[in-house]
Design a protein around this nucleic acid. Structure first.
Lengths: 338, 338
DNA sequence: CTGAAAGCGCTTACAG
DNA sequence: CTGAAAGCGCTTACAG
């Protein structure tokens, strides 16, 4: 059962392949093909179950109608939800998404860009990791449509959309300070990316503004790929070294989960023994008694904005004021942990 | 900055396009091209940054080296982790994955198969939902390589790999019965698929084997797309109607999460007020005190087996005994909830 | 050893 | 109104 080609359909209809092509692509009117003929051809197409060979169409038109989406981690809840929303947004413009993840490895990121460009994707959506700056710059030099999400490179004028990390963390810190906490720790990830640095900066600045003394040892920076046990051990030691801590701010949700696991293990009670605020929400934070106070990321807005930015570059959407650098506010959700 | 074609590279090297093609495809020896020439060509290719136009290659060879993966839900943790493992397994054989989700909608599933076949994917990996039987049968009639995961259609001899639902649930039920529970409820999803029916059957059979009386009202079947509030309301009512329940078996992890939320809301204590076992693990179940007893799915094994089955169909892997219907054991993990 | 040519399945100027 | 022809960028039998 071989699949039909345009030529086969044309033979079935007794016309030239070009005629079928015109009808199928809505150019019947323009090519002044009679309505009867057009209808007849459409009927035959329907009955025969003909499907255009997309690869051939891509080759001929130079458009794949595919967007490449590169996220940091396929299994992270933020990225999974982002990918889902991106997919349905792209669909509205007739684009499909090819989805892959770097696992925070710039080398893998470079390979993925390479692979996507060989596949002739029409545009790129990327949550960048440290070390990808060169590759992204090259993409821009080739005039490839591109949007960064979740982070960006300060030296590189690439369109990007992300949460306002600084403002969100500042709000969380204000909240903790207002509650009377004086010894607030920060648990973050050792990653040289702007959104992480902004979170740390907001922590430091907010304490300073309120005249609360900083202690270097109140900041814990964990390597990115630390396994679960090692993370729990590190957080446990951190708590031992800093017995006066009365609150901790976690800069990512997987760190928050590790923190929670540690507290459970040590039998610490939230918020009695320790208050907690986490950047980025998670199922667990909604459910775990007494509920963890978080900054929720505007995933839907990020996805919509990113797709809109990309469509503008692909000339699928006209005008409006073009804003290429967007920071969206997070939603501060107070729960029982703080 | 236009990208280079084979022809451009050939011109640069002063040879025919075919010669470059042979060298690039490792057929230099076979075509008796001198080592010097081959090296010179490779050097030029490297320096020029030439990348083959994958779309053209696909069209010419009829192979896309792309596999279509259709899962039930992009954001479900089981499916996300399955997709991740599938991706890295496929990579080993030089295949990429295009990823999409049905959201349990057969119509969307049919569209996705359509879209994937227009994209000329070389094979299909599908977690089927009710109503997709026809479409999958058609794929088989066209001799398309295909593997089903997580479920299958009893009437359709498609290769498939999934967890042994019956055996896993039976083990969980035995455990509850051994612990002395006499009023065990079942919360399941109203879905007409074999893996769900097997889970219910195992529940019913195990009770029967142990001479424990069945009560129809101990079984709660919730619609698939019930929102969170409605699910909690339904489970709350179910508990009110059945005050004697001393244990509940949940047949999917999202149902288990809803159950847990309900218990939290009602202030019920696990396992004192109620014991709980859930099919399919989740972060929350590891963490939530006292820990939820679960049946963990062998995700990695499922992914590996599925890819192996597909590669056999694509003749990328030879022989070995071909087993096309595989049910893998789940891992029963006892935690504090039972 | 190497090159000219056909063809994968489309789309689209161009000629009638 | 309709059809023959070129060409997207490759691969691969075929002829030298």
């Amino acid at each position: 059962m071989k699949r039909l080609s345009l030529k086969d359909v044309a033979k079935l209809a007794g016309v030239a392949p070009s005629t079928v092509s015109f009808v199928l692509n809505g150019k019947a009117k323009q090519m002044r093909i009679s309505d009867e003929l057009a209808d007849k051809i459409r009927a035959i197409v329907r009955k025969s179950g003909y499907q255009p060979h997309q690869v051939a169409v891509n080759l001929r038109t130079g458009q794949s109608k595919i967007l490449g989406l590169i996220v940091e981690s396929i299994s992270g809840s933020f990225f999974a939800s982002l990918a889902g929303t991106i997919e349905s947004e792209a669909e509205k413009y007739g684009y499909r998404i090819v989805y892959c993840s770097t696992e925070n490895d710039a080398k893998k990121g470079a390979e993925l860009i390479n692979m996507l460009s060989r596949q002739q994707v029409d545009g790129y959506l990327i949550t960048p990791v440290a070390g990808m700056e060169q590759d992204i710059q090259q993409l821009m030099e080739y005039n490839k449509p591109i949007v960064l999400m979740d982070s960006y490179f300060p030296g590189l004028p690439a369109p990007h959309v992300l949460i306002d990390s600084y403002g969100s963390v500042a709000k969380g810190m204000e909240h903790l300070i207002k509650k009377g906490h004086k010894h607030i720790g920060l648990v973050t990830v050792d990653m040289d990316m702007v959104q992480i640095k902004e979170r740390t900066k907001a922590y430091v600045d907010t304490l300073k503004e309120h005249g609360i003394p900083q202690r270097k040892k109140y900041q814990l920076k964990l390597p990115y790929n630390l396994d679960k046990e090692a993370a729990i051990t590190a957080i446990t030691q951190y708590l031992e070294v800093n017995p006066k801590l009365d609150a901790i701010f976690f800069t990512t949700n997987y760190l928050g989960i590790r923190g929670l696991e540690t507290f459970v293990k040590l039998g610490l009670n939230l918020p009695k023994d320790l208050a907690m605020v986490c950047f980025d929400d998670h199922d667990l934070f909604r459910l775990y008694p007494p509920g963890i106070t978080v900054i929720e990321q505007p995933v839907e807005e990020i996805a919509k904005t990113a797709i809109r930015m990309l469509m503008q570059q692909l000339n699928q959407v006209k005008g409006g004021a073009k804003k290429w650098q967007v920071a969206l506010p997070g939603k501060f959700i107070v729960r029982g942990s703080s």
